[in-house]
């Protein structure tokens, strides 16, 4: 079933490749000729990318990049690069694509192309199981726990009107406080909330208050490759395989 799905994806990316070739851009052809898609990532950000004990690269981004490579008919080749060197590596043509939980940045779009988002990270409101979840921060009453110094704390400072805001040392402390009924609400990152909700089930995830879109990144001048990646991604995101991949790395709650 998965093979049939990839054949469909391949058909879509083939069309994109034709469009790219028509523009006189050989970026996709070069990748296909080499038989490999060189993927840059900083494998220190689980569950998106990490180095497994066996030494191989694993995570949601690794699986996603593998799907994209398959759709292009090539093998992925991993380049584990420190976060701050990712864009430079792409510019220097050391890699063909970045897949490293990278938020789109409008100021970079002269140099790079961002795919459609494949995941929206951000801050979520969590609450006690069974309690009605507030739809916005201004409606929150009682005690709201946040990580001191974090984006969540800044949000609470700006938007909370009727709740007592309690600052804690870490997101883990925030989630433990909500789970232990020491706080009525908490603000934490979506991925952390999903992971903890999956294992403990001791709080529920409510409204997402901020949206940070993660995208695949290619060079702006590599239009044929960008189009092929986007076409592949569009098919992948609609597939059951992608839903399984998300559940595998982020849990069923995300």
């Amino acid at each position: 079933m998965r093979r049939r799905q990839f054949l469909r994806i391949l058909a879509v990316t083939g069309c994109a490749a034709v469009a790219g070739c028509a523009a006189g851009d050989n970026s996709l052809a070069l990748v296909r000729r080499s038989g490999r898609l060189r993927v840059g990532l900083d494998a220190s950000f689980p569950p998106f990318e990490a180095v497994a004990p066996e030494g191989n690269i694993v995570g949601l981004d690794a699986d996603l990049a593998s799907y994209v490579a398959s759709a292009l008919g090539v093998q992925p080749e991993w380049h584990n690069i420190a976060y701050d060197g990712l864009y430079d590596a792409l510019a220097a043509r050391q890699v063909d694509m970045l897949a490293s939980a990278l938020p789109s940045d409008p100021l970079r779009t002269r140099d790079v192309s961002y795919s459609q988002p494949y995941f929206y990270d951000g801050v979520v409101l969590i609450g006690e199981p069974g309690a009605p979840l507030a739809a916005k921060l201004a409606d929150v009453t009682g005690r709201l726990a946040v990580e001191m110094g974090s984006e969540s704390a800044a949000l609470a400072r700006r938007l909370v009107r009727r709740a007592e805001v309690i600052e804690m040392m870490s997101e883990a402390d925030v989630m433990a406080a909500v789970a232990g009924a020491k706080a009525d609400w908490g603000l934490v990152g979506l991925v952390s909330a999903c992971a903890h909700a999956e294992t403990s089930g001791s709080f529920v995830i409510g409204v997402q208050l901020t949206q940070v879109p993660y995208c695949l990144v290619t060079r702006a001048q590599d239009k044929a490759l960008s189009q092929a990646v986007s076409a592949a991604l569009e098919s992948i995101l609609a597939s059951a395989a992608w839903q399984a991949c998300r559940r595998k790395w982020l849990g069923a709650k995300c």
Binding site: D42, S44, Y83, M148, G149, S150, A153, M168, M169
Partner: peptide, 17 residues
């Protein structure tokens, strides 16, 4: 530094303290 991805960074709360 409290960058979420930089290897020499700390958490925002640690940075404050």
């Amino acid at each position: 530094n409290d960058h979420p991805r930089w290897t020499r960074a700390v958490s925002p709360s640690q940075r404050v303290l």
